[in-house]
Design a protein around this nucleic acid. Structure first.
Lengths: 338, 338
DNA sequence: CACTTGAAGTGTTACGTATAACGCCCTCCG
DNA sequence: CGGAGGGCGTTATACGTAACACTTCAAGTG
């Protein structure tokens, strides 16, 4: 009540409790093991509660030289997947008293060229998806602790990296489809530079190539339903025997492929089997439900945040890729006997 | 090069340029109209560039007593809609040199009860969706400038509110379906407290009630495909003549309704017409494509941020609800002649 | 009794920035 | 020739916190 309308400071609390400001800082910071008596400590806490005291974070950050805030750089957030990554990262961050601020790449957020300008907070570290490559150069400038998501682990030496076990995901898909008897494949690939998609293309070629008498073609499409529809329709119209299995780099691509197949009068899975990647809500909305590789986006974010916390504390981040799981639903079956 | 590894401060720049720290602050802050010569200013800018100087945001925030950072409180972010709201808000914020930090409600982010603990940044204001009601009490405590999204405008007096024109959306849907000849309606309502859904239920009853010989039943479901499937199946199994039109509070509900109808052997739109709300990617992925009311989530976020900026500057926020638009696709048609 | 030890605090400083208040020099005008 | 004023900067200070170094006092120790 003393000062009027400005927020109370630790000095106000000190005055109210009849102690020095330093004592308030010690008590509220839980650093008073043997330095302040229990009764005094309680008096301080009481005064703080009374005044509704909240520490001024800007002042604390300045004093400590760190902010307990990290930046998460992702492509446009309007994808379920990256929303999940954020959620996981934010959960782990909150458990450790950290905050997460987002930098969705420029297309989503407008003219800001500088990631740090849009994040008004001072930062302790950065987690960046390789899909937001356009922002990376600016980030490299400052030598903040950095964790990369979805990036060539041998590429950026010395930078901690967290990846999904894409190789294993491809293995599961390939074994599933080859086991059903499929031999002619079309890979509907995402038209986006990304380590995940690179690995997928390479591994898929390897796995399919291991079996004699197989063929693999590739079509590229932007990650959207309409884009996939157009690309799939064009690819399926090519001369020669059509594919019996369509391997898509994203559930949205699979949804577009469904529409292309329907237009061409082909049925899923009777005429063509389809697989996706991600396991979005979409996957169970479409008919038949989509066989897809589930990526645990939240776990991805959690692991990314844990890795960054490790780096910040000077520890070595946990190694090992994040497991993925093939979810078999109704969009895959044995190929037509032909 | 002088100090080693710590980041350069404005004093370092000053020394390099041979001026005082104050001059650096003036030049880099564009406050030097007639106070510093052009040549000196250029020398300062050059030195800053040379040293890779970046102002310490924590220090600036402390000095100025504001942070140019606002908090956006939303329900779990893993919905396309709120991701869009964030994107729009962040875009407008960036244009005005502001940052946005998120507080997805606790279920998404874990044990943190205090929204301000998870947002380590000091805040200038808050934008809150009424759907994240659990966090609101904590927010009211601090009297930060507040803008509510999707809230009863007459309820929280004195608090700026931004809403979608839900009333008009219902009008468009009702006119469309009534015009096609539908008379028996089932409202598949979202099982979430929200101003939007309240208004929808009320307005739908009014619109349908205006026409003689109509009936309207209501079923509630959580916003998920499986939840909607179960609720719709139960509601459709009720005795008596079934509805010819299903009005859903969310595209996901509509997707679940599709599945329920398919199980019951009913076809869309031949047997039953279906409408949604949101126009998510989902809407064009399912077959037939969904007739739905498009909500411009990004515009919603933009308007929210603009309103908050207005409040922060002491202006009156722009009034008027955000227009919504009925997108007619293949899921609605005339009812069966019966 | 002289000395150490530990508890319980306090005084002071620094973090890096923005800005109000103040100087100095030169020119111009009465 | 004196003083007013503009151009060009500088000095000093405050923002709120955390932490180090220091003081005081009572109890323990040989």
């Amino acid at each position: 009540m003393a000062r009027g309308s400005t927020r109370p400071t630790s000095r106000d609390v000190a005055q109210a409790a009849g102690v020095s400001q330093a004592a308030v800082s010690l008590v509220l910071g839980d650093k008073w093991r043997g330095r302040v008596s229990e009764t005094t400590a309680e008096r301080v806490r009481e005064a703080a509660r009374e005044l509704g005291y909240r520490p001024n974070l800007a002042a604390r950050n300045l004093r400590l030289g760190r902010t307990r805030t990290v930046l998460l750089v992702v492509p446009a957030l309007t994808t379920e997947f990256f929303a999940g990554v954020y959620t996981g990262a934010a959960r782990v961050a909150a458990e450790h008293g950290f905050g997460v601020v987002l930098y969705p790449s420029p297309e989503g957020v407008g003219p800001a060229r500088d990631p740090f300008a849009s994040a008004q907070a001072a930062l302790d570290g950065v987690i960046a998806s390789s899909m937001a490559a356009d922002a990376l150069s600016a980030i490299r400038g400052d030598q903040l602790p950095l964790v990369m998501l979805d990036s060539d682990p041998s590429g950026s030496l010395g930078v901690a990296t967290v990846n999904l076990d894409i190789t294993d995901g491809v293995r599961q898909v390939a074994e599933h489809l080859l086991g059903l008897g499929h031999r002619r494949f079309l890979h509907l690939a995402a038209d986006v530079p990304s380590w995940t998609f690179e690995v997928r293309a390479r591994e898929l070629a390897v796995r399919v190539g291991e079996v004699p008498g197989t063929s693999l073609r590739t079509a590229h499409a932007p990650i959207s339903i309409e884009g996939a529809l157009a690309a799939a329709e064009a690819a399926l119209a090519a001369p020669g025997p059509g594919p019996t299995a369509l391997v898509c780099d994203d559930d949205k691509l699979a949804a577009g492929a469904y529409k292309a197949l329907r237009r061409l009068g082909l049925r899923v899975p009777d005429d063509v089997s389809v697989t996706g990647l991600d396991d979005l809500a979409l996957a169970t909305a479409i008919d038949p439900e989509l066989t897809t590789v589930r990526l645990d986006a939240e776990l991805f974010g959690e692991r990314g945040m844990q890795a960054l916390l490790a780096v910040l504390e000077g520890r070595t981040p946990e190694a090992g890729d994040i497991p993925v799981e093939l979810i078999v639903r109704g969009s895959t079956g044995p190929p037509r006997a032909s």
